[in-house]
C-alpha cells in the first residue's frame, strides 16, 4: 500500500528559487527511506512538502490516497497528527520535563489525561528513556534529547515519521542510538523518511536511498549507498 505519492511536483519559491522540478515518487507503507543530496539540493523542501509546511507550485501529493495540496488550511492540523516530525535541533521546550514535553503533543490535541499518561509511558519505553521521565532536556545528552523528540513525534501514533537530519547535531556514538530508535519504530510498521548527510549511517544500515540534486531525483535505489556527484 502506498502511503506517499508525488506526481510531477515542482516548487518555485516566491523569491524565484527553483527548489524542486518534476518530482515523481512512490513510498510504500512501512518503508525506511533516506533522502540524501548536497545542501541546497531541495531535500528540505521535499520533506516539508510531506507535512505541508510548503505547498508545491504544481503537481499533486497524496498521503494515504488523499491529495494534501487540495487540503484546506483548517484541515492541516489533522494531517499533521498522522505525521511525526523530528528535527536536527530537537525543538524541545526547555522548561518542561521529558514527560511533559512528550505529553504536550497530546495535550494540545486535547487527548484525555489517562490516554496521555498511558501513551507517554509507552513511547518512553520505546525510546528507552523511562528512567529519565522527570529530567529536563538540558540534563540529557544530545542523543537522549533527540530520542525525546522522536518520542514526541510518535506519541500520537503517526503513519509516517519524518526526520530532517536527526543526527546532524550528534556525535557518531549518539547517532547510532538515534538510528536504533528509528529502526525500532520502523519495525513496528511506521514509515520513516530521513534526510541525512551521514554517509556512514546510510552505507551501514542499507535502505532505500533517494538522491536529490539541484531539485531533481537523480537516483532511487532500494538498497542504496551514500553517493552523489559533486
Amino acid at each position: 500500500m502506498r502511503i506517499i505519492e508525488m506526481n510531477n511536483v515542482s516548487k518555485t519559491y516566491s523569491n524565484g528559487v527553483n527548489a524542486l522540478n518534476n518530482i515523481d515518487i512512490l513510498i510504500e507503507k512501512g518503508e525506511f527511506v533516506y533522502v540524501v543530496g548536497p545542501s541546497g539540493a531541495g531535500k528540505s523542501t521535499f520533506i516539508k512538502m510531506i507535512y505541508r509546511e510548503e505547498l508545491p507550485s504544481s503537481g499533486s501529493i497524496h498521503i494515504q490516497g488523499s491529495d494534501i495540496t487540495k487540503l484546506k488550511s483548517k484541515h492541516v492540523p489533522y494531517l499533521r497528527r498522522k505525521i511525526g516530525v523530528v528535527f536536527q535541533d530537537f525543538k524541545l521546550l526547555p522548561k518542561l520535563s521529558v514527560y511533559e514535553n512528550i505529553a504536550f503533543a497530546l495535550e494540545v490535541i486535547e487527548e484525555p489525561r489517562h490516554i496521555i499518561r498511558k501513551r507517554v509511558m509507552e513511547v518512553l519505553d520505546i525510546v528507552k528513556l523511562k528512567s529519565k521521565a522527570r529530567f529536563l532536556p538540558d540534563e540529557l545528552s544530545g542523543g537522549e534529547q533527540q530520542r525525546v523528540s522522536i518520542a514526541r513525534a510518535i506519541v500520537n501514533d503517526p503513519r509516517v515519521l519524518i526526520a530532517d537530519e536527526p543526527t546532524g547535531n550528534l556525535d557518531p556514538d549518539t547517532s547510532w542510538e538515534v538510528m536504533e530508535t528509528l529502526e525500532t519504530i520502523n519495525r513496528s510498521g511506521t514509515t520513516v523518511i530521513m534526510a541525512t548527510h551521514n554517509r556512514e549511517i546510510v552505507n551501514t544500515i542499507k535502505r532505500r536511498v533517494i538522491v536529490i540534486e539541484s531539485g531533481r531525483i537523480v537516483r532511487d535505489e532500494l538498497r542504496g549507498s551514500y553517493s552523489y556527484e559533486r
Binding site: 507535512y51 483548517k74 497528527r81 525543538k91 521546550l93 504536550f104 503533543a105 490535541i109 514526541r152
Partner: peptide
Amino acid sequence: KEIQIMKLVGATNGF
C-alpha cells in the same frame, strides 16, 4: 517555539 511545536503535532489554530 512552543507554537511551532503545537502546529507540528497538529494543534488546531483555534487551540
